[in-house]
Nucleic acid binder design. Sequence first.
DNA 1: CGTATCATTCGAACCGTTTTATACTATAAA
DNA 2: TTTATAGTATAAAACGGTTCGAATGATACG
Lengths: 359, 359
Amino acid sequence: MIRGATIRDVAKRAGVSVSTASLALNGKPGVSAETRARVLRAALELDYHPHTAAKNLADGRTRTIGLIAPISLEHLFSSASFFMKLFRGLHHIAQRKGYVLSLYIAESDDEAALQIKSLVRSRAVDGLVITNPTFTSPYLEEIRRYRVPFVVIGRPVGKAPFVDNDNQAVGWMATRHLIEHGHKRIAFISGPDRFTFCQDRLLGYRKALEEAGVPYSRELVWRSEIVEEDACRVVKENFPKIRFTALLAATDVQAVGAIRALKEMGIKVPRDISVVCVNESELARHFMPSLTTVDLHERELGRRAMELLIQMIEDGVVREKGIYVEASLIIRESCGCNYGKGGGNEKEQGAPQKKSGKG
Amino acid sequence: MIRGATIRDVAKRAGVSVSTASLALNGKPGVSAETRARVLRAALELDYHPHTAAKNLADGRTRTIGLIAPISLEHLFSSASFFMKLFRGLHHIAQRKGYVLSLYIAESDDEAALQIKSLVRSRAVDGLVITNPTFTSPYLEEIRRYRVPFVVIGRPVGKAPFVDNDNQAVGWMATRHLIEHGHKRIAFISGPDRFTFCQDRLLGYRKALEEAGVPYSRELVWRSEIVEEDACRVVKENFPKIRFTALLAATDVQAVGAIRALKEMGIKVPRDISVVCVNESELARHFMPSLTTVDLHERELGRRAMELLIQMIEDGVVREKGIYVEASLIIRESCGCNYGKGGGNEKEQGAPQKKSGKG
DNA sequence: CGTATCATTCGAACCGTTTTATACTATAAA
DNA sequence: TTTATAGTATAAAACGGTTCGAATGATACG
């Protein structure tokens, strides 16, 4: 690796001192326009790029954001697509503001906590984005003690700055769509309670039923892990016992499991049962029938998170606020509301994102 | 952010000089066991973590690998899942060897080249992993001039160290499976020629036909962009004109498009037409029918790439070699070879990965 | 006993920036 | 004319590590 020009080389070529060169290169005041131009030209001629590590050491900032991801994320809600979209949003803002993203994958929350500690104490990052959806209070407390700016993706159990969808609104929106098309017996396939988004979507589901005067019935709510097989299982178990005309799944893979179960029992979607779910993904888009689903706008999630984080870093203020990003319903085939209408089978509905009280 | 202990604090507490402390902490020779223990204990007591930037500046290494990804990757072959798996592999080895991954997304190859230049010249990384599948010779030449270790994921058009599947073997393997089940009229949905993996898969397809004495016919090879809609289109265009009993798609999303086209024309998969494709993904796994496909073992791809790269970094030797990672066929429903057999519908076949001459 | 050898240890230089405190102008105010 | 006051430019001191070369003391050898 060829040894590049240093700021000393630039200074010498421009006929100024190193300190003046530094000021000029960083656009700081205290340099005449003429001198600044001379320095900039010299830098250009030498193809000067400041040495990252030297800069970090001198001014104590790394311009690096640590992205903490749990290995388990891979198994969650078609998470590859979720994560990539989120990442695109994070990266977009980071790049624009001159920050770099470093990735850290941890096998467990304990390992993540350890990694975080090391990162912070060795001054490797200016801030953190934490995507572990099960990260709980003790961890957050610990991180808070480091006084490092951080933001959580998803609503954490403890108190912390976060960016998330209003998952109650998400559940509400999906359920509402089914109700509007006349359904009254709507099954809900939920996920484990350790995920706040599952709890919240269930609340939204109940709320929509309530508002419509449809009685809520516990026998219509089925727990399943967030994998196809388990959703398939709960549907097969419950279908013979319980009557329903529509089904809402907490995630897209669960919807797919449900549809497979129904198909294996000779039930057609959407002809016999309407299905709606959450998560926009390759799977939702390409499945047959294509899935009516709630798009979480992960990219926006990422953008907002990065904006919040960088603000915290640069202003030095830690805001405890949570930010909610709007979601929207994508109407496709599985709900059946445009079944048989042929032609363009996809419409997006920028839902009114009910300002549902949370807390 | 609390000011942590420096190596000077550690040295003082252990009653040694800074240089001795450094040697001890880094496990270098020239320190007595007793002294080393004392230093280590002091470091532990002070919860000392070396300052990353200072270390980088002092020894000229960053222990950081830059991961260059093109924005377009997102649209390629269910690439979210591809990328996440690749990333897991890369990260796995990187972490084990004490490296950190930084991510850089570029809108275009030009932008990527610019980013790379800046990264290298500002000494922000020790090496690069380049995932842009269309990165061509001029770019590679430029990077080579920087004398920075790098490895390309996928077979590049130019000469460069790379890690990839033997895509000729991949195409061969998939075609072979269809031939073994008696098919002679096998259509191939290929992708744009700018992707070497498309060219190679086509070669493998031809080779398998040849070996089996099945005549190759140009009318059975259809170009399509790597999106569902386009694959759907080419199938609809060709189906009425050309007779075939099986179909091989260069990617999973193209297979899905093809199946949709067939379905819309009243043809059932696998009952009427057998379908095989490449890429193991959520989509391939959960689609109905589930897709018989070639698993590219992206995680292994990532591992091997990172191993090669780190070797190049630490040995200071640039090897021009290409590494091929084995792929394997996953037999599911869409090929129909186990159609109606019920029960476990998935078997993996560690194919003999024919050592097909590539040159 | 003197000296070469070896294992330890240490002081100081160095990595390439930013930043602080200071000096030097030239101009404006007194 | 002197004295503030900006406006520029600079030298030197950080930042927190690694590493080089010299110094020290102990051991082995002739």
